[in-house]
Design a protein around this nucleic acid. Structure first.
Lengths: 211, 211
DNA sequence: ACGAGTTAGACGTTTTGCGTCTAACTAGAA
DNA sequence: TTCTAGTTAGACGCAAAACGTCTAACTCGT
């Protein structure tokens, strides 16, 4: 039960701290085998570390899982920032943001092989991290919509929904794209692009085609 | 402990007997997760069958594993036969035979992900099936060499080794191609082709390039 | 109604995994 | 050297999972 927040993620002894080293090993195993099939022994071996060391830094398996999720959250945030930094139309930027957010987790989890189980585990033992995960997307998406609206590129009110609802709807659509015929990673990214196109069209300034 | 050899592989109730159905489910799981991580529960669920049913047809997990191997052996035999039925030079036919034999198992086992563990399990609980596996290759390879020699296409004695030793050496070479930097399935098949080329050159009738 | 095959579920046993703990080892710092 | 922080192998007790067995009930085709 040593102090985890000491010598934490920010400290780099020889470039990578124990905690990240273990979290990354755990990510590889959870992605490949799922949560239940991965034992603490497996994680220790994958990380090249003694089993006892895991318990020096983490309270248990669920804690390792949370740390892994937090690490993944950091990655997602970075990718979202990069996606928005690049130029492009609103539609393109929205698609890039969705790919950065939803696609990162999807591809990290081995193209969704164990997504069902992992999602269930997240809900039960890592609700906070899961919420943070979604909060990242919401804040970036809101910023994107508001900037585009401020520059007159889009008109959010055209969608008939308040921004928060619009974003929440978009997230549900992205979540739905994972289910029903497990898609490959490329398929999933394509579906995300289609969703982005629809939502961009819904707020486009110029009138849409109408028969 | 019902009679397994009754209603065995050759019987096809509605096209596929329980035993094959279960063995195929087991193959999928062993390939994806390895032997240890796959439980009888998993196999039953994957096969869409009650757990008790497994024990109506098999003595235990090891028995399921053996049946799965036997099924795979049948597939390999078929593919070897097809490979030799096609026309081509000795070198090409040898390469095709090696791909059919070694490649089938390799690709079935998820590109060699769990090959180490599965091989260890084979040795410990399925020695007979493993031997049969290798015997298949030996008999086909011997036939290929002897036919080509009879038709004057190759001269086995040029290799300086008796045929049995030559084939055994070739099998060891193929086994070695799996290790050291886990290859992808295509890489592995390429390595096999290279090995076939070398062994074909070693028994080629015309004199090899010599500086 | 019969029987062969299957099923859910319970059972006792064995194995595995979890989380804790200890004594020993390794390095870098004082 | 000594001290300390971090690590390590291995043992421990407990809980959970998996194994293999068994039974009573169900579903068929005959």
């Amino acid at each position: 039960m040593s102090d985890r927040s000491e010598s934490s993620i920010t400290s780099g002894e020889d470039g990578k701290g124990r905690i990240e080293q273990i979290a990354e090993a755990a990510l590889r195993l959870f992605a490949r085998y799922g949560y239940k099939r991965t034992s603490m022994d497996d994680i220790a071996r994958e990380a090249g570390v003694a089993r006892a060391t895991l318990y020096l830094h983490f309270k248990g398996k669920d804690d390792v899982f949370r740390a892994m999720l937090a690490g993944l959250g950091g990655q997602v945030e970075t990718r979202c920032r990069e996606a928005l930094a690049r130029p492009g139309s609103f539609s393109e930027r929205l698609a890039a943001l969705m790919a950065a957010h939803h696609g990162t987790a999807f591809s990290a989890f081995s193209a969704g092989e164990h997504l069902g189980e992992l999602k269930a585990v997240m809900v039960s033992i890592a609700g906070a991290e899961l919420a943070a995960f979604e909060a990242i997307f919401i804040s970036f998406a809101r910023q994107l919509f508001e900037d585009a609206a401020a520059q007159g590129e889009i008109a959010i009110e055209r969608s008939g929904l308040p921004l928060d609802t619009l974003i929440a709807t978009m997230m549900r659509a992205a979540a739905g794209a994972k289910y029903g015929e497990q898609p490959s990673c490329e398929d999933y990214l394509l579906r995300l692009r289609e969703i982005a196109a629809v939502f961009a069209a819904a707020v486009a300034r110029d009138a849409p085609l109408r028969a």
